[in-house]
Design a protein around this nucleic acid. Structure first.
Lengths: 151, 151
DNA sequence: GATAGCACGTTCCCTTAAGGAACGCACCGC
DNA sequence: GCGGTGCGTTCCTTAAGGGAACGTGCTATC
């Protein structure tokens, strides 16, 4: 399809999309996160084509987001698990869940619930400033050029 | 390309991807957010094909994420702006920025800086529990089936 | 009053990616 | 030997993206 690569753009959104912006990639991460972590399992859970799943897994491993680990020899069998880099991408998934739950849920309600272990409550994520802890949403920030900005 | 639609899946991640999962969509939102909000501006800023930009804008407007507003008559000229639904998607972009800044930055440093208006500091977003305010990351939650789960 | 230019698309052709099904292969259990 | 399992790979068809040219309604300029 001759798609433009985003990795070279001077933009962290574009670079992040280069890693997980392909179709299916976030859903693969979700599956691995919840324990659906073998090729056959992911394939049948998502209904993704085997060819595309092979490509995506290879790419995510190369990107350092997933690790391919052999869990059995003779015959060799593999599972995929999140690296530290990949685990932090789960935060992105949690924000997608919060937005989807709010704006796209059906009458049946949200398909999945999240219980915060620390407090035991069913809750969702909120964005806060890493510096002062205050709310940090679209209108709360000022965007400025950084040191790695393009010419 | 005969791509599978994600909108019907019982998963808020998949449904969110159905809205902004197409290539370029998050970058279009970013542009609109920072004030690059007209067809020509977005096209030349991103280098996206005019055909695809037309399709994406139409889709995002239909999804209620953008609003198409006429800012001039004779000849009719249009600009795009974020709806409330779209503004909350900016939070997703901010998380992508935080992750990209941390894991994908070059030696030059992050391309863009964010100043939190409330405290004046250059900062990034952090995820917290909407209930207790504690940190909420990959390991901090328990995933449970919700009322809208699939059969 | 023809010409150039701008903003916003639309149309056309070519290349490439996704879907789907069949095939391959190493091993295990019967 | 024979079917089953896990994990891909190959092949074909269809559809989506890239790029450039074209269209349209209007304004400004020579």
């Amino acid at each position: 399809m001759q798609r433009t690569r985003f990795g070279d753009m001077a933009c962290s959104i574009a670079r992040t999309l280069d890693v997980i912006g392909e179709p299916w990639s976030p859903l693969i991460l979700r599956d691995v996160y919840v324990g659906i972590d073998r090729f056959e399992q992911i394939q049948s859970d998502l209904g993704i084509s085997r060819k595309v799943l092979t490509e995506r897994l290879k790419w995510l491993v190369e990107a350092g987001v997933l690790e391919r680990r052999q869990y059995d020899t003779r015959p060799p069998r593999y599972e995929y698990l999140l690296t530290a880099k990949g685990s932090e991408l789960v935060e992105l998934l949690m924000v997608m869940v919060a937005w989807g739950d709010k704006w796209l849920a059906t009458e049946a309600g949200p398909p999945v619930l999240y219980r915060h272990r620390a407090c035991g409550e069913m809750s969702h994520v909120e964005l806060r400033c890493s510096s002062c802890g205050g709310s940090m949403r679209a209108g709360d920030v000022e965007v400025l050029p950084g040191p790695g900005a393009a010419a």
